[in-house]
């Protein structure tokens, strides 16, 4: 009997805890949105952050894209062969990448590589009172530190997603055409016919932008509110990766339903 009560109490506490944190996140987001616009003229700060988050994630994005493309080619070929339509491989691979895998996998990699790094960096700045010192110098840390990193994620992630898709297409070409021997002309022409710029490419891009907002927001938020200790920063970093990844997958489902529901 006691145990059940304890359980219910624990459940209630964890629910109110989560709700409180969600409220904190919402307020943080609103404060962040307020300071972004006046900060945009500081182009140098943004370029520096885009370089940090973008260029650092570039290698892992290209390599992962290549391999995902190669796997898609092998699996796709195996299935398409049964229906005697191996020349559709180009369109299958391109659609999967541009619509889904590009934005989603690039965002997951981005959360693990750049998002966690941002959280750790900001968390350390909090722990070593750098944020407090900035605030004491009458420089708003929200504008000077947080906003450029958030904006950089929104800019970098769509670019990384496109790079991922491109690398994937190259990977599938290498395996499908060069190795398995599908006709190169058919591979490209099928791709060109089936991929629609507005429906597929743009929607994929929108997804990446939404993921950029989500991962960017969660990363800076977790860093900003991490406990000022070594464990605090490390658990914040873990939370960034876990919560960002789940958020990406849930958002992807929602966005996919919204975007592609009306199509054939």
């Amino acid at each position: 009997m006691m145990n059940v009560l304890d359980l219910i109490e624990g459940l209630g506490a964890s629910i109110t805890g989560s709700l409180k944190r969600l409220g904190l996140l919402a307020r943080f987001f609103i404060n962040l949105l307020r300071v972004i616009a006046p900060m945009l003229k500081r182009v140098d700060l943004h370029i520096k952050q885009i370089y940090f988050v973008g260029v650092r994630s570039l290698a892992i994005t290209i390599v992962s894209g290549l391999f995902v493309g190669m796997v898609l080619a092998v699996q796709g070929y195996e299935v398409l062969q049964r229906f005697g339509s191996v020349e559709s491989l180009g369109s299958l691979v391109a659609l999967s990448l541009v619509r889904e895998l590009g934005p989603v996998v690039a965002a997951l990699l981005f959360a693990g590589r750049a998002g966690s790094a941002m959280t750790a960096e900001i968390g350390l700045m909090v722990a070593t009172e750098q944020i407090a010192a900035m605030d004491m110098m009458a420089v708003n840390p929200m504008a000077r530190v947080i906003a450029p990193r958030f904006v950089a994620s929104i800019i970098a992630l769509p670019i990384l997603a496109m790079i991922f898709s491109t690398a994937g297409i190259i990977g599938s070409y290498m395996v499908g055409v060069e190795l398995i021997g599908i006709d190169s002309g058919a591979f490209w022409s099928q791709m060109r016919v089936s991929v629609d710029f507005r429906v597929d490419v743009l929607n994929g891009l929108y997804k990446a932008i939404v993921f950029g907002i989500a991962v960017g927001l969660l990363s800076v938020f977790e860093g900003y509110y991490s406990a000022p200790t070594a464990e605090g920063v490390s658990s914040a970093t873990t939370r960034t990766v876990v919560i960002s990844s789940l958020t990406i997958l849930v958002l992807d489902f929602v966005l996919t339903v919204l975007m592609f529901r009306g199509l054939n």
Partner: peptide, 29 residues
């Protein structure tokens, strides 16, 4: 903030910006 820009605070461990040189730290304000 207007009032604070006329205050200085020395934090216990300095709270220097670790990604900037000494020069850039002082140039920051």
């Amino acid at each position: 903030y207007a009032l604070r820009s006329r205050m200085g605070m020395l934090f216990q461990f300095g709270a220097l910006f670790t990604d900037m040189s000494v020069y850039d730290n002082i140039a920051f304000p």
